[in-house]
Design a protein around this nucleic acid. Structure first.
Lengths: 133, 133
DNA sequence: CAGCATCCGGGTGGATACTG
DNA sequence: CAGTATCCACCCGGATGCTG
């Protein structure tokens, strides 16, 4: 039985932030990448919006998902929900400071996506062509 | 029937990049935020790694998910797969230039997460306490 | 207008067993 | 060691109908 792989409980890796922090980052990305969060955050970037206004703005989201995602965003302190008890009722959603601060890194990722989308598409074409042919 | 909401087909928003681009950014985030991609990309940040090495490094990933995610990353041109036909076989995975370039915006998001994680947790506690009490 | 309740199909992802 | 194949549980998310 050789020691091809170390059986040490503590890996000889970078001393800090490699396991735990990665998890948290991953969890954040799971939230941010959940298909609607970013669309909502960006739609709210220009100022407060009402429920159906957001729905129209985003286009393609079900009201169920809009409700759920907004609730999650509110729970995380990224969005505020303001109810005006009129008839008909009016509810406004708005980014908090924390929500606005999220836009910067998200936009950075967006820049990356826009910049490299063509490269990715090309890579996919190449890969699919190679693996199927 | 009042005009509480504008029925205009073109919203008075930013002139460009609000619908289409958002979708692509969202799609990219869906890939990047798929629970394992970021962990893998970050694990590969220090250089090439072998299959089971990655598995141990990440810890908690099934080999099925590792295989699938690596294949997707390879398909997108973010990772290269190098086979050494020895016995036992050896396969190395390594970030491409494109893959490395992704680390910057992802790390930026990571910074944000680490910086604001406490705030988010606090907001959640507050929210949960309020809604349940 | 804003939002909840319910049903349900499809994809995600884990566990396990097997191959080269 | 580095996968593939299969089965299966879960939950994400859409459609619909109803409330205040």
């Amino acid at each position: 039985m050789e020691v091809t792989t170390s059986a040490l409980p503590a890996p000889p890796q970078a001393p800090r932030h490699d396991s735990v922090d990665c998890r948290r980052v991953s969890q954040l990305l799971a939230r941010v990448g959940d298909k609607w969060t970013v669309l909502i955050v960006r739609s709210l970037g220009g100022g407060p919006r009402r429920f159906n206004e957001l729905k129209r703005l985003i286009g393609g989201i079900s009201q169920r998902m809009l409700t759920l995602t907004l609730k999650n965003l509110e729970r995380d302190g990224l969005v505020t929900r303001t109810v005006t008890p009129s008839i008909p009722p009016r509810v406004d959603y708005e980014l908090t400071d924390l929500g606005h601060s999220l836009r910067k890194p998200v936009d950075a990722l967006g820049e990356w996506a826009l910049t490299n989308m063509a490269r990715i598409d090309a890579a996919r074409d190449r890969f699919d062509r190679t693996s199927e042919g």
